[in-house]
């Protein structure tokens, strides 16, 4: 056993072929900007080994070949190779846009109904859904109600959302301390969301790549940082299916670095793009009824070009 001060002894021997490592490292870099340097083969192998076994592959090389062609396995592999903690109020700007622009607009539009619906369409462990719940608690006018649908392809993630419990490492990520004390209580080593917010969120299993069940229409749909896991035809199919679930005048939000360039013309015509601060929102065509001072994309919406 080595006793050098810096490095620790014994790592398991690597069986993965160099070409396989290059392939998977390139994929992870392209999808997530995370760099896996050559000395980390053993880590990649350790993390992919359980997935390879589940997929029935003879070895890691065979599994990586599968990952190159199968979108679902690709997503699992990327999840396994990237840090899973997500942040509260991730990227901040969309939540600011929600509070400053989208919510006031929706409150005007839905004045008769006094109820808003939100869909977190790749909810993961639930930080997105509960972040929105916190904003609604703070900014929804008295007498209004809201409900949030949180869906994911992973039942393990849905269970996490239902439990509403987070480790303190997760609690450190982007959550203002004032919100921690207001909206969470300590349970053992974790923090649990308070019942008033917990009640706003319901979960449902849903695979975006397949036909959607009849989930109804939503004023705001959050489809953030998930389209990157799909190939272009699937991505377009999702945006097509999503259109009928965004209520007229509603909003669809993608991830900060995601764009919808190169949509086929008919799909492109289904959506308008509106720049809200640093955020680009998609709205069902016809939503933008009249120019607003904050909006600069009416002409862009008419021509389909990006602002």
């Amino acid at each position: 056993m080595l006793r050098r001060a810096r490095s620790l002894p014994i790592q398991k021997p690597v069986t993965m072929a160099p070409a396989s490592f290059q392939l998977i490292a390139a994929l992870v870099l392209r999808e997530t900007s995370i760099v896996y340097e050559p000395r980390k083969e053993y880590l990649v192998e350790a993390r992919l080994h359980p997935l390879a076994a589940q997929a029935g592959c003879a070895d890691i090389d065979a599994y990586i070949q599968l990952v190159a062609t199968d979108a679902l396995e690709r997503r699992k592999a990327i999840d396994a190779l990237t840090i899973n903690e997500t942040s509260w109020f991730r990227d901040n700007a969309p939540y600011q846009a929600f509070t400053d622009t989208m919510l006031p607009e929706l409150v005007t539009q839905r004045a008769a109904r006094r109820h808003l619906t939100i869909w977190s369409a790749a909810c993961s462990s639930g930080q997105e859904a509960y972040s929105i719940a916190m904003l609604l608690d703070q900014h929804l006018p008295a007498g209004w109600t809201a409900d949030i649908l949180a869906t994911d392809v992973s039942t393990a993630m849905l269970a996490r959302v239902e439990a509403g419990r987070y480790s303190q490492v997760e609690m450190n990520r982007g959550l203002p301390a004032t919100h921690l004390v207001k909206y969470f209580t300590r349970v053992g080593a974790e923090f649990e969301i308070v019942p008033t917010l917990r009640r706003m969120v319901r979960t449902r299993h849903l695979n975006l790549a397949e036909r959607f069940p009849a989930v109804g229409q939503y004023d705001v749909v959050l489809l953030r940082n998930v389209l990157i896991y799909f190939d272009q035809p699937t991505k377009h199919g999702i945006l097509r299916r999503m259109h009928q679930h965004v209520a007229p005048g509603g909003y669809l939000l993608l991830g900060s670095s995601e764009t919808t360039l190169d949509l086929p013309p008919d799909l492109n015509a289904m959506w308008e793009r509106e720049q809200i601060g640093r955020v680009q929102a998609h709205r069902p065509a016809g939503s933008i009824a009249a120019p607003r001072p904050a909006s600069s994309s009416i002409s862009a919406a008419l021509t389909g070009a990006r602002p």
Binding site: Q168, N172, R173, G174, P176
Partner: peptide
């Protein structure tokens, strides 16, 4: 929770619980 409340009331603007990752500090 009581400690965090006390610190914020005394004038702390933000609060990070150890252990933390570099991203957590940057995000705060």
């Amino acid at each position: 929770q009581g400690q965090i409340v006390r610190a914020l009331a005394a004038g702390a603007h933000e609060y990070v619980i150890k252990p933390f990752t570099p991203d957590a500090i940057a995000e705060k």
